[in-house]
């Protein structure tokens, strides 16, 4: 792995970094609310490595979710770089095209959010297999993997062909998790994936995280549940200490 350093010489990175944040600045300008500015990050730099699970901690309102959204291209980066390190070059998510971000989301970066936003009427099984199919996987194979995933997450089989818009909060959450873990993304962002899950499913998520790490996935996560944090965390970053 390599990246282009400031003096443009190619430097081999052998520290296993997949994602680097360099001098990130982010603030929200609320034009419709008396032009209020809400500063979030001021010169934040972080590195996320292969096979490591980085857990973001700190009091709420410090921008844990915002950071994940910046890493997913969901929030705009005001200044600084978010570099995805590929074998031959880096891609800066702050400046790359929308087309590239879509490609990264399809193949490189997975994201499990707290909310499920989907087209009504699409069956759960199709939603879960979709990330694989969009990567070019054969539909039958994708459906098979989706079934395994749904079974692991204890979604009753009679719900598979229904749209999750009518599911309970916990079930919707598990559909999100299934979508996030099915495609073996090299980078995975988890925003409170276990928030509304029972003990048994929390255990499944922990297993999934361990398996992903074993595959080499770099995970960045927010977990309220201390028990989960202890089990999965390799690096803990307190945003209260690094963000300002």
């Amino acid at each position: 792995m390599s990246y282009v350093s400031e003096n443009s010489a190619i430097v081999t990175r052998n520290d296993g970094a997949l994602l680097t944040i360099q001098n990130l600045y982010k603030q929200f300008e609320l034009h419709t609310q008396k032009n209020t500015s809400i500063p979030i990050f001021n010169d934040l730099s972080l590195v996320f490595k292969k096979s490591e699970c980085t857990v973001l901690v700190g009091p709420s309102g410090l921008g844990k979710s915002t950071l994940l959204k910046c890493l997913y291209g969901n929030y705009k980066i005001d200044q600084g770089e978010v570099l995805v390190h590929f074998d031959d070059e880096n891609v800066d998510m702050a400046t790359c095209s929308a087309q590239m971000i879509n490609a990264l989301r399809r193949n490189v970066i997975g994201y499990v959010s707290q909310f499920l936003r989907v087209i009504p009427r699409v069956p759960a099984i199709d939603l879960v297999s979709e990330p694989l199919i969009s990567q070019g996987c054969a539909p039958e194979q994708a459906i098979e993997k989706a079934q395994v995933m749904l079974r692991r997450l204890s979604i009753p089989e009679n719900l598979w062909n229904l749209s999750p818009t009518t599911f309970s909060g916990g079930e919707q959450q598990r559909i999100n998790i299934a979508r996030g873990f099915i495609a073996d993304y090299p980078i995975l962002l988890l925003d409170e994936p276990t928030a509304s899950l029972d003990h048994r499913n929390v255990q499944v998520v922990i297993e999934l995280i361990h398996e992903a790490k074993a595959h080499g996935t770099a995970i960045v996560g927010i977990f309220h549940d201390e028990h989960v944090r202890d089990q999965v965390s390799d690096v803990t970053i307190n945003l209260a200490e690094v963000a300002q």
């Binding site: 609320l30 419709t32 959204k69 969901n74 929030y75 705009k76 971000i101």
Partner: peptide, 18 residues
């Protein structure tokens, strides 16, 4: 202009925010 979710979740222009 930009990614759909970026424009809708983190709109920059005052009009888009409105």
């Amino acid at each position: 202009q930009g990614l759909t979710d970026q424009v809708l979740d983190d709109p920059q222009h005052p009009y888009t925010q409105l």
